[in-house]
Simulated assay, not measured.
Amino acid sequence: MTDTTVAGARTAPAGGRLPLSLDHGLAERLATRSVVEGECWRWTGATNKGGYGVIGRTGNGNGAALTHKAAYEFYIADVPAGLDLDHRCRNRWCWNPWHLDPVTRKVNVARGLRAPGYGPRERPLCPYGHQYDGKRVRPDGGAHRVCETCHRAHTRGVSA
């Protein structure tokens, strides 16, 4: 039986191997930058503009990998060519490999469009995981929701 807790992620199941040239410390690095939220494993480290977790590859100048893809390839298998990993939980920050399905881009987009909370006005959190807590009024009189934490960081010129 596969252990699906973050603490259990420290040891790869049988057949686990290193993805994307990451070192043997991948499971520990993932686990130390995460918190368990229900069945999801929230990545608390760096994220990209889309809200997906990123983790550095080993070695100087080797770039970064998406945390969910690295975890999937470490614990499950390589992602088949031409397929995306779809978060069944709909949480971009989740790196639990058992929440991921390799699917075509068309299927991934279609699933996202049907998901509850897909509409921007329905989402409680910004792509970086902060609570939407404000509303900005545009000069034309239209209003849009804004994450005040990200807005303040942006106006100061720093990342949230």
Rank of each mutant, 00 (worst) to 15 (best):
T67Q: 07
T32S: 09
I76A: 07
H99A: 05
G112Y: 06
A46G: 08
A110F: 07
A71P: 10
G25T: 08
K106M: 09
P80R: 04
G51L: 07
N108I: 04
S21Q: 12
K106Y: 08
N108Q: 08
C94V: 07
P102K: 09
G38T: 00
P102C: 10
R111K: 13
E37M: 00
A31C: 04
T32R: 08
G117V: 04
A71S: 15
A27C: 06
V109G: 04
A46F: 01
G112E: 09
E37F: 00
V103E: 12
V35T: 11
R105C: 00
R92V: 04
E28M: 02
D84R: 11
R114I: 09
A27D: 03
A115S: 13
A77S: 12
V103P: 11
G56M: 05
L22T: 13
G38H: 01
D23L: 01
V54H: 09
D86L: 14
G112D: 11
V109L: 07
N108K: 06
A77G: 07
G59L: 12
D86F: 10
L85Y: 11
D78I: 00
P102N: 10
H87V: 07
T104Q: 13
H68S: 07
L113V: 14
S21T: 09
F74Q: 12
H68L: 05
H24K: 12
L22S: 10
D23F: 00
D78C: 01
T47H: 07
V36E: 15
A81C: 09
G38V: 00
Y72W: 03
A110G: 12
L100M: 14
N48F: 01
T58L: 09
A65N: 12
L66E: 11
A31N: 04
V107H: 11
V54C: 12
H68T: 06
W41P: 00
D78H: 01
G51F: 06
L30W: 03
L18G: 07
D84A: 09
G53D: 03
R29F: 02
R90L: 08
L30T: 03
E39D: 14
K49E: 04
D86H: 15
Y72Q: 05
R17W: 01
R17C: 02
P19C: 08
G82F: 12
C40F: 00
V54R: 14
G117Q: 09
G45Y: 00
Y72V: 02
L66C: 06
